[in-house]
């Protein structure tokens, strides 16, 4: 099946790409790019990674922050210790190292599943935090444990301004999205979904659970690793283990629950939602109270809103915003004469 069975979707995608490549760089302010677009795009990649694992292969992970941390630290070490390595190789290498870690963490999935596996991935989360906090080797012996990332250049062109970073991340978003979309449409993607829907039945029809689950873990953490590396290099411009704690893992999980499990579009919707909602809440709170409200209270309201939305979506629309969009699209196709 074609990626876009509906002609309008194809046009929609082309328009989005034109906006992202031409219009945004021409008109968006620095604040817009750094404050909204960069985090949105990086979180989208991370969400695609988790969605492959949880939404498509049905293996819940609470350790995605750990894979992002592995990606960030690998990228830093590759870039610093092998100065001649091209930038793309740094990022892809970081992804591959994260993928290897993912396979190790995912190996218990052959014996355990459900929340047992979730606890195993949680273990990876705590272990990675401890490793990066304890051994200064990972930051080249720096005492502060937080270090700035080295300068980047792509094919001799230095990547310095926010716009350069934007284009680099955008490139990765396009490539990873295309990769993910095609993976889930291919044999391996169908195998993931078969294991998700019923692992015993999948095994009976000849799908190897070992290979399927581990490949999902590998691909998922590859994406997470790249997202982590981009987060460190292009967004915060420093490597810091506290940036990838348990709450990051949960945040990515929230993105795919709200956006839609088992949907690539959902990853983008979820990431956008999670990036925009706090800002929106802030604006609304300031508007309503005239700036009287404390930032602590806003954080708490944010937590309550997220928690409430998660429960709401799981009850009302387990497939998230992506399914709502599909439903709306179906209605629009028949509109204005539903029968």
């Amino acid at each position: 099946m074609a990626i876009f069975p509906i002609r309008q979707d194809l046009w929609g995608m082309i328009t989005t790409l034109i906006v992202a490549v031409v219009i945004v760089p021409a008109f968006a302010s620095e604040h817009m790019i750094v404050g909204y677009l960069l985090p949105f795009m990086i979180w989208s990649i991370a969400a695609i990674g988790l969605n492959i694992l949880t939404g498509y292969a049905g293996q819940l992970s609470l350790g995605h922050g750990a894979f992002m941390a592995v990606g960030a630290y690998s990228a830093y070490n590759l870039a610093v210790r092998i100065p001649d390595l091209p930038l793309l190789a740094v990022f892809i290498g970081a992804g591959l190292i994260a993928a290897a870690c993912g396979v190790v963490v995912g190996s218990p999935s052959l014996r355990i599943k459900g929340f047992y596996l979730a606890v195993a991935t949680l273990a990876a989360q705590f272990f990675s935090e401890w490793v990066f906090a304890t051994f200064p080797w990972f930051v080249g012996g720096a005492a502060s444990m937080v270090i700035d990332t080295p300068k980047m250049s792509l094919f001799g062109y230095p990547i310095e301004s926010n716009l350069d970073n934007y284009f680099l991340v955008l490139g990765f978003v396009i490539v990873t999205t295309l990769l993910a979309k095609n993976l889930v449409r291919s044999a391996i993607g169908r195998a993931w979904m078969a294991v998700r829907d019923m692992d015993v039945a999948a095994e009976v029809i000849g799908i190897r659970p070992l290979y399927t689950k581990l490949s999902a873990f590998a691909v998922s953490s590859f994406f997470a690793g790249i997202a982590g590396a981009l987060y460190a290099f292009c967004y915060v411009k420093s490597v810091d283990f506290t940036a990838f704690d348990l709450f990051v893992s949960l945040k990515v999980l929230f993105m795919i629950i709200i956006g839609g499990m088992g949907s690539i579009l959902g990853c983008f919707l979820g990431a956008a939602f999670i990036v925009i909602l706090p800002i929106l809440l802030n604006v609304v709170a300031h508007h309503l109270t005239g700036g009287q409200v404390s930032p602590e209270l806003i954080t708490n309201i944010e937590h309550m809103t997220f928690g409430g939305l998660i429960v709401y979506f799981l009850i009302v629309e387990p497939h998230g915003l992506a399914r709502m969009w599909t439903t709306a699209k179906e209605k629009l196709r028949l509109w204005p004469f539903p029968h």
Binding site: F254, H303, I310, V311
Partner: peptide
């Protein structure tokens, strides 16, 4: 059960905030 598990993660956030 996994859906219920995720719902309790949401509940966790909600109660913390509350």
């Amino acid at each position: 059960v996994i859906i219920l598990f995720m719902a309790t993660i949401g509940l966790n956030y909600f109660l913390e905030g509350l």
